[in-house]
């Protein structure tokens, strides 16, 4: 029975999430065995060295990776429905370009730390509001108009990003490029992001059936009783909030928001009651795994997470696409 299969899939993804989180906490320059981890956790909570490695160094980064992956996957799942376009991802409407412009501007004028996060937030918020304002036409906002406005704005902001990179002094460039590719170095405990992800998932689940209806088209949704303009703005603001939160936390990590909803859809079908939590769990797991590989494969040198994410995700996606569905 389909319901059982989907529930089973969610349980499996939950177990995968726990395993990848554990793997990320134990794996690194210093290897920690599982029994050592349990011992630290239960018997010797004040072992200073391992305690520091696990709880101060790895836990914030591991959780940040998971939150970022979950937020981007959730935003991607919503955006693909909102734009009714399988190619949509959280960055397609220029939110990440806005965040990048804000963050890079802060870097180039010599501001660091919390200013970069704040700049990213401000940049993404500006992009969100601009798209929302410019895509409105005669009190309605079609998916095509929203998409075209977002893409145009993203292109304009990309030009601005290029300009900032061109005029930036060499010592700043490496940090800027790493931020653009996605960077979790120096991550802090993502408490705000966890609240956004948890609360956001719950709110999104309230829209699950409406999302299912909206996949049939705007006209169909309206004749079934949906207030389409209000729904579009709600979903747009939700996915934008998730994207802006993720980008502010970890920079522009590509691909996870595009591929993960497709992966879950291929395994569990389109029902958003399963698709949304499934995307959060798989997105979080994949990005946690990608980050673990990124920081350990060529240690002490760190690799861009986005690159590892794509290397991990593409083969999985292609195999699933090849063998699971004949309806794509």
């Amino acid at each position: 029975m389909m319901i059982t299969t989907r529930t089973f899939l969610l349980i499996a993804l939950g177990i995968l999430a726990i395993l990848t989180l554990l793997f990320s906490l134990l794996h690194g320059t210093v290897w920690i065995r599982f029994d050592q981890f349990l011992s630290i956790l239960l018997l010797h909570p004040d072992d200073p060295f391992l305690h520091q490695v696990i709880f101060e160094l790895r836990l914030p980064r591991t959780l940040s990776a998971f939150m970022t992956g979950g937020l981007l996957a959730l935003a991607g799942a919503l955006m693909q429905v909102l734009l009714r376009n399988p190619l949509a991802d959280p960055y397609i409407l220029g939110i990440s370009s806005g965040a990048a412009t804000g963050a890079l501007f802060c870097m180039v004028v010599g501001l660091g730390g919390v200013w970069i996060t704040g700049g990213a937030w401000l940049g993404s918020l500006t992009a969100i509001l601009l798209v929302l304002f410019l895509s409105r036409h005669k009190s309605s906002r079609s998916a095509a108009r929203l998409l075209l406005t977002g893409i145009a704005l993203a292109s304009g902001l990309s030009a601005l990003i290029s300009f900032i990179l061109v005029i930036s002094p060499d010592p700043l460039l490496r940090g800027m490029v790493f931020w653009l590719l996605g960077d979790l170095d120096g991550a802090r405990m993502p408490l705000v992001e966890a609240c956004v992800l948890g609360g956001g998932l719950l709110i999104s689940l309230c829209f699950a059936n409406a999302l299912n209806i909206f996949t049939h088209g705007e006209k169909q949704a309206q004749t079934l009783g949906m207030n389409v303009p209000r729904f579009q703005v709600s979903i747009y603001l939700l996915s934008s909030l998730f994207t802006a939160t993720a980008v502010s936390l970890a920079g522009c990590i590509g691909f996870v928001g595009f591929i993960v909803p497709h992966l879950v859809r291929l395994m569990a079908g389109y029902d958003h009651r399963y698709l949304l939590p499934g995307s959060v769990l798989l997105g979080g797991s994949l990005l946690t795994l990608a980050d673990t590989i990124a920081r350990t494969l060529m240690a002490p040198q760190q690799l861009p997470i986005g690159m590892i994410m794509s290397l991990l995700g593409v083969p999985i996606f292609l195999v699933l696409l090849r063998y699971t569905h004949d309806s794509y």
Binding site: L205, N209, T215, H216, R265, Y270, S327
Partner: peptide
């Protein structure tokens, strides 16, 4: 209708949407 990933029952159930509760659960 061209939403290919749904089952026949799931698609047909969407007609009940106007009669469902706040969160649209059947």
């Amino acid at each position: 209708p061209t939403h290919f990933l749904q089952t026949v029952f799931e698609f047909c159930l969407t007609g009940r949407y106007p009669h469902m509760g706040l969160f649209g659960m059947p």
